[in-house]
Design a protein around this nucleic acid. Structure first.
Lengths: 158, 158
DNA sequence: GGGCTTGTTTTGAATTACTCACAATAAGTG
DNA sequence: CACTTATTGTGAGTAATTCAAAACAAGCCC
């Protein structure tokens, strides 16, 4: 019998090697968690990963998330007023919608083809830059929170 | 003669009153600084505002920036890996480009009409939200940094 | 135009999210 | 299996921002 450290998809194995990184249980755990439930923040990743790896530390999670992001295996999302979130969906230029009430993040495909706003029209007086990426962040209210708000709006007491 | 606290545009006076806020020297200083030089972070606002108000504190600047943002007199920009920045240009839905090298921010008008991507196409499997605003953040390299990079690329010594 | 009320600012400490230095550990290699 | 070196763990540190409570000052009343 082998060590069989939880069920880890072999493709993460290959992806790590392809990125020139060693295959460790910690990295596989983090990748597995984020593949299963995207858009988690570091604390939540730790919480989930500890089911498989009880001794994993928050600092290690930070190191791993940063390293895997730099390696191109993860993508970091940084919504306002929220710690950074991570996802395994990389390589396409999809965007995100965040609920201003509960903070939930959903994926949004690019609405206007594959590179919607990569040719900005500069405000007069500004000095143009060479643009590499354009990220669109939608802010709104998710269906759950909308329902809650409507239910709570009539009477403000409770 | 009056107290004449530096040259403050009377329109901020009116704007503050219209927002139901008291007109204080601190707020006028902050608004004046940001009107003159947009996209400053809190520390820089303090530095500039202290020319007129030497005793102003950083915490007050934070309180003022937050309050004026909530009152609709300022807009907050939160670029990744950078403290928040503020500007007096509110009420239009313009966007921003940030130089990944020096952090400079430039204004970008909306490329595709006045509400470019307000109708997102949801990724299959995601739960749609009611979108209120769509912010586009362009990341690139400004002309200055591009020049520097080209000049420095050949020899890495100095 | 002096006092009063209440919104603002200041002071000082605390918090959140994250980073760093260095020691301990364990992948991968021969 | 031993060895090298990437990776993780430990403990402390930092940057940006927030909070509680006291000091202050705008704007209103007269």
């Amino acid at each position: 019998m082998e060590t069989a450290p939880a069920a880890h998809q072999p493709h993460w194995d290959a992806a790590l090697r392809a990125a020139g990184r060693r295959v460790t249980r910690q990295r596989l755990a983090v990748l597995g968690v984020l593949e299963r439930t995207p858009h988690l923040e570091a604390e939540a990743v730790l919480r989930e990963a500890r089911h498989a790896l009880p001794d994993l530390t928050l600092q290690s999670v930070y190191v791993i998330l940063t390293d895997l992001t730099n390696s191109g295996l993860l993508r970091r999302i940084e919504p306002p007023h929220s710690p950074a979130r991570y996802e395994t969906r990389v390589g396409d230029n999809h965007h995100h919608a965040i609920c201003t009430s509960c903070g939930r993040v959903e994926d949004v495909d690019c609405a206007v083809g594959h590179a919607p706003c990569l040719t900005p029209s500069w405000t007069p007086g500004s000095r143009p830059m060479t643009i590499h990426v354009a990220e669109v962040l939608y802010q709104g209210v998710c269906s759950d929170c909308l329902g809650l708000a409507e239910a709570a709006a009539p009477e403000l007491s409770s």
